[in-house]
Design a protein around this nucleic acid. Sequence first.
RNA 1: GCCCCUGUAGCUCAGAGGAUAGAGCGCUGGCCUCCGGAGCCAGGUGCAAGGGUUCGAGUCCCUUCAGGGGCACCA
Length: 552
Amino acid sequence: MLKQELARCLQQAVLEAQQRGALATAALPDVIIEHPQNAEHGDFASGFPLKLARSVRMSPMAIAEKVLEYIVPPPQIDKLWVAPPGFINFTLREDWLSMEVESMLAAGESYGDIELGKGRRVQLEFVSVNPTGPLHVGHGRGAVLGSTLANVLTVSGYAVEKEFYINDMGNQIDNFGRSLYARYRQCLDKEATMPPDGYYGNYVVDLAKEMVQEHGDRFLLLPESEAASQLVEVGITRMLQRIKQDLEVLNVVFDIWFSERSLYQGGQYDKAMELLQSGAYVAKKENATWFASSSLGEDKDNVLVRSDGSPTYFASDVAYHYNKFLERKFDWVIDIWGADHQGHVPRMKAVLKALGCDPEQLQVILCQLVTLRRGEEIVKVSKRSGDIITLREVIDEVGSDACRFLFLSRSADSQMDFDLELAKRQSADNPVYYVQYAHARIASILRFAEQQGMDCSQGDVALLTTEPELTLIRRLILLPEVIEQVAVNLEPHHLPYYAQDLATVFHSFYKQCRVVSKDEALTKARLKLVKATQIALAKVLRLMGMTAPEKM
RNA sequence: GCCCCUGUAGCUCAGAGGAUAGAGCGCUGGCCUCCGGAGCCAGGUGCAAGGGUUCGAGUCCCUUCAGGGGCACCA
């Protein structure tokens, strides 16, 4: 990328200057190239002379002037100059900018792809809810975040696998089974009491009714625990189907659905525990088995196996991450969790150390919680209370594209109010549609041009020289940088902002520059620019998992 | 009590230690004989408070205040 090239070129110039004795030798700070906010300061700028001033005992301006003499700028650069208090600024050649339109057209759908991952295998695990109820709006946020990151990492050259971890065993499953059994009995007019911490949502009642319809009263003949465990099997299957469907409506699709139970059936759990034991990270205390994480710098130890012999969720997660790293050998694993799992992160990092892995290979994105509200009223989303609003209802009300855009527009570490009223009210006049409208408008221009018999294949992009045209191109060439930024920092929220910005610049260009006109040569050139814009807009929309409509 | 996240415009939020802090919504006023007016142009108020580091802090560090989350033999 040009940015990196400029950084290298500056470093080279400093070295050169130092070798010739024009500058005192000193450790060079990281040369950071940035885009100045003010267009008068050029397309790129670096303030490194300001950082170097102290160590080489010269004024920043003098350093900048000296270094400037040794810079051999890449051919894309038009001008470079020194600006107080010690910046070096660069502008791009305008003929190079317009030629970039051709490379975008040539790249087509692959425009913006970068070679960052070099084929490294990365696993993204997200959503991973208990299959004991429908998804709510908070899960939607993680789902959108995860699927968008997966898209971006894929075009950044990683081999990505998206995985949903199914917690299909443990206390919550037992609880779900008992709740289902109680509802089942109640449906058959038998006396039953719900577990006090049971699942009180109406969907459990509906599920029980289905069970009665399909199986009659045959579960009444079984002992309670047996009946509950049979019922819960069906319950899990149904819930997973529903979860899967809801996610598909949100355009979230997984490669692998990984069952927690399989860790025990496949021997992964035993192997992981042996490994911990062999490293002496396991201790028996008060009849339970503990992970001695305090020996790894944690504040306290954690229970792996309860005194009743059942493994904790944490033990499963140890086995699961053993599987991810040592069996499946992912180079990089990204887990997306809700902020309420925050305390789990250091534990898991300690587990990686104990398993002999580099904790850096595991990256956990903590997604702050979502509060759903309707105007002033806060809507409950707890699965166990009765009155829940499901993710599906929100999607049906607001639309999948708008949901995705809204979820993506906030960084993962800021908590979020999702206001149904606002989301719907804005739906007509909303950044989501603003961006899509730009895409549809382009499609319309291209249709119109086609009707006029215009073929732009011979267009000469060198004719693109006016300010609105060049401004548009300057935005278009930012796409690879945005993708890189999202991939490196795992921050997909830059995508909607870029998309909106690009749409704004396009709309402004459209207002100022008539595309299809009597000037045939200019028309063909501008059609190329418009097509390139469509490519970039479609790309960002696709990365965000949204549709890029031809008409609205 | 300890730990994590957050505090930027009336509201919802962006902001790679850099030059004059931005967008959307809302509000006010302009703009279609013409490729889509779901659009364009113009208008203004703000970094929670206080210290520190730095040539330079919304950004890094400390303290205080405020909101959210965590600190289970739950997941």
